[in-house]
Simulated assay, not measured.
Amino acid sequence: MKRYTPQAPIPTGLRGRCPRCGQGHLFQGFLTVRPACEACGLDYSSFESGDGPAFFVMTIVGLVVVALALWMEITYEPPMWVHALVAGSLSVGLSLILVRPLKGVLLALQYSNKAEQGRFR
Rank of each mutant, 00 (worst) to 15 (best):
M58F: 13
M72A: 13
F56E: 00
S49K: 00
W71M: 06
E73N: 06
V92L: 15
P53Q: 10
T59Y: 08
V65A: 05
L85N: 12
C21R: 02
V99G: 13
S89E: 08
N113I: 01
E48L: 02
L85V: 14
P6T: 15
G62H: 03
L109S: 09
I60L: 06
E48H: 13
L85W: 12
P78G: 09
G52M: 09
M72Q: 08
M80P: 00
C40L: 02
S45F: 06
A54F: 04
L31K: 10
K114C: 14
Q7V: 09
Y111F: 15
Q110T: 10
L26R: 13
L63G: 01
G88L: 05
A84E: 14
L96E: 10
Q23I: 08
L107H: 12
G24T: 05
Q117T: 10
G22E: 11
D51T: 01
A36N: 05
V64D: 08
Q23G: 01
G16E: 02
K103A: 15
W81K: 05
A108H: 04
E48A: 10
K2W: 10
M72N: 05
A87Y: 07
L42R: 05
G29K: 06
L107P: 13
G104Q: 09
V33M: 06
E77A: 15
V33F: 04
A84S: 14
P78L: 03
S45I: 04
L68W: 09
E38H: 15
Q110G: 11
Q23V: 14
G62W: 05
M80L: 12
